[in-house]
Structure formats: C-alpha cells, structure tokens
Computed example of a mutant assay.
Amino acid sequence: MSTIYDVAELAGVSAKTVSRVVNEDKAVKTSTREKVLAAMAELDYRPNAQARQLRMGSKTSIGLLLEDPTSGYQGRFHHAMLSACMESRRYLAVELYEAGLADWQAYLDRFITDAGIRDMILLPTLCDFGPLKSFLKSRNINCILISPSTPDSHYASVAMDDRLAARDIVEYLFSLGHTRIAHIGGHPDHAASILRRNGFYEAYDAAGLSRPPADYMEQGTFLFKSGFEAAERLLALPERPTAIFAGNDEMAAATCSVAHKAGLRIPEDLSVIGFDDAPISSSVWPALTTVRQPYLEMARRSIEILDAAGDTVTASDRQVRHIIPHELIVRETTARL
C-alpha cells in the first residue's frame, strides 16, 4: 500500500505539500497540485479517512439514524444524504435505531463518540422523540429535524409542505372531473399523515364541495399490506370511488393490485395517486402518478444549515423551518373521468 512519502517522492515534493493537496489548501500552486494528483493516481494512493477527519475536525461527520432502512422514505433519504455528502465532502455515519432498546443512550453515545459526530439528521418519527433530542442537546450535537410535527427551539427543520402537496393532488383530480375521491392515510403517528389528510379536506372546502363520506377515509400504516386491505374495503363499497389518493406509493401500488384483482381497469375505471415517488412508483404497471419528495434538495439544504452553524447548540425563540418545493409527477394511473 502506497504512503504519503511514496507520493511525495514520485511527485518531487515534500510530504507536507502532499498533505496540503489532500486537504485542498488553496495556496498550493496549480502545477504542483497537478503533479501530486498525478502521482496519487499512479500509485493508487488513498488518504486515511479517519486521520483526515481528525485534521478537519467535527464538521466532517454527519450522523443519520434509521428506524427502518427498508422503507421507501428512509431508503430514499439515505441515498440523498450520501449524494449530498459526496458533493460537500462530508462523511455520513449511519446507525440503526431500534425502538424500545433499554440502553439506547449508551448505544448512541458509543456511536457519536466512535464516529466523531457533531452533526446529526433526525427523520420522522425520531425528529419528534423528546428524550432523544434532549440527550443530543446534552451532548451538544447540532441537529436538523426532517419534517417534524412540532418546532423545536434548539433545532432548525427542513421539510416539504405535505398539506399543500395533498391539496394539489386533490385539485388535480378535480381538474380531471373526479369528486368521489377516497383517501388511504399513512401511519397515524406520523405528522405527514395528518397534514396530508388536512390538505385533502382543504381542497374540498376551497372548492365548495361536500367532504367525502366517512367510509371513503381509510387508515393505513404506509405498508403495502395495509394499503391492500384498505383498497379492498373501498372498492367493495356500494358506490365505489372513481379515484383513490394513497398516502404513499406502496399503498398506491397495493391499491392497483386490488383493482386488477377486481377486474377494474386503471385509469379507465379507477384513477390512483401515490406519494413520495419511491422506486415502486415507476416499476409497477401502470406507472404511478405521484408527488415527488425533494429528497436531494432537502439533504443539501440540511448540510448547508449545518455548515453555517457554529460548534455550539443554541436555543432561540423560533427556529427556522425550511420548506422545499414538491413536484406532481403525472404518469399512467390517472385519467379524465
């Protein structure tokens, strides 16, 4: 394995100069930088990441806790954070957080210490877990809360407007002539589920239309199975809906499966809309109309806020909530009535 001294010898410079190039010192001449980079490439030299982190200090590592890495939302956000960290030359340290773990504080303390974390991203529902936030404050960890249900005086938040996105979905269905629209909500413990249902109702109120009957409003859990069972109930109604807005793409895909099983054509007999633009939305047939969560933009904004923050967590009367615009992606599961 090549060392910094091998690179220095091949490039005809000192080891200190190689170190300055590795650490992107702007004072290094372009010609010298090019010689060092060429030597590094020829020798396949890889700087020691841990040593580099110690040199650069606490602003290098960002921690991310995942409760369910297999979920569409957390998986997509994880990927977005990896991309954003590559762009900003930060490192992402990821750990699994299991609810109910008896010694979770000691577990997280080891994670924070071993990975040298000073910054952290908290996704739903951890962004609303008071004991966790109190623990991180005690460790003086800077955090960004992603789509929290309530503001926090210590931490800024980054979110998309779930309420507005849901309203846009329903208004789009109105434009296609649908008024008998059913909704399969997400997990009741998630703030996004409540906001999306509120946006659903707001669209009806703004249009001066009566809200759908109670049996048009189903409760899911963001899981495929819950969407399947809810869609079965909705499509068995005496007056079935002409469109279904599911709280995420997995439940929307499940709705399509139930419709196919019942012999209904999509979108001729039933329009279906999901939420998130997860991979399943473009891999099922027909491809789902959905709302695209701005994952990468949210990840980038989170890093920008952390980069601008100091090394000390400071409280304020009102932390800023950064709203990132969403996008309605029209595909094959919606049509004019």
Rank of each mutant, 00 (worst) to 15 (best):
S2D: 11
D6H: 15
V7I: 14
A11K: 02
K16H: 12
S19D: 11
R20A: 04
N23V: 04
K26S: 12
T30S: 11
K35I: 00
A38H: 03
A41I: 00
E42I: 00
N48Q: 09
Q53D: 05
T60L: 15
I62M: 10
G63T: 06
G63W: 00
L65C: 09
L65F: 12
L65P: 11
L66D: 01
E67F: 06
R76L: 10
C85A: 13
E87W: 01
S88R: 15
S88I: 00
R90A: 10
R90G: 00
L92M: 08
A102G: 00
Q105C: 00
A106N: 07
D109E: 14
D109K: 05
R110Y: 06
T113R: 13
D114R: 12
I117V: 14
R118M: 09
D119M: 14
M120T: 12
I121K: 01
C127E: 07
G130H: 09
S138Y: 00
I146D: 01
I146F: 09
A156I: 02
S157M: 04
V158I: 13
A159M: 14
M160I: 05
A166P: 08
R167Y: 03
V170W: 00
E171Q: 14
F174R: 10
S175H: 07
H178F: 04
T179E: 11
T179P: 01
I181W: 03
I184A: 00
H187I: 05
P188E: 11
P188I: 12
P188M: 04
I194G: 10
R197M: 11
A203E: 04
Y204T: 11
Y204L: 06
D205R: 15
D205C: 03
D205L: 12
A206L: 15
A207T: 01
A207C: 05
G208S: 10
L209Q: 12
R211S: 06
A214N: 12
D215N: 13
Q219F: 01
G227D: 07
A230T: 04
A230S: 12
A230P: 02
A230I: 03
L237W: 03
L237M: 11
P241M: 06
D249M: 04
A254P: 05
T255V: 04
G263T: 07
G263Q: 06
G263W: 04
I266Q: 03
S271M: 11
I273K: 02
D277N: 15
S281P: 13
S283Q: 15
V284M: 15
W285C: 09
A287V: 14
L288A: 09
T290D: 08
R292E: 15
R292T: 10
Y295C: 09
L296C: 04
L296K: 12
A308Q: 11
T314S: 13
R318P: 00
V320M: 13
I324T: 03
I329H: 01
L337F: 12
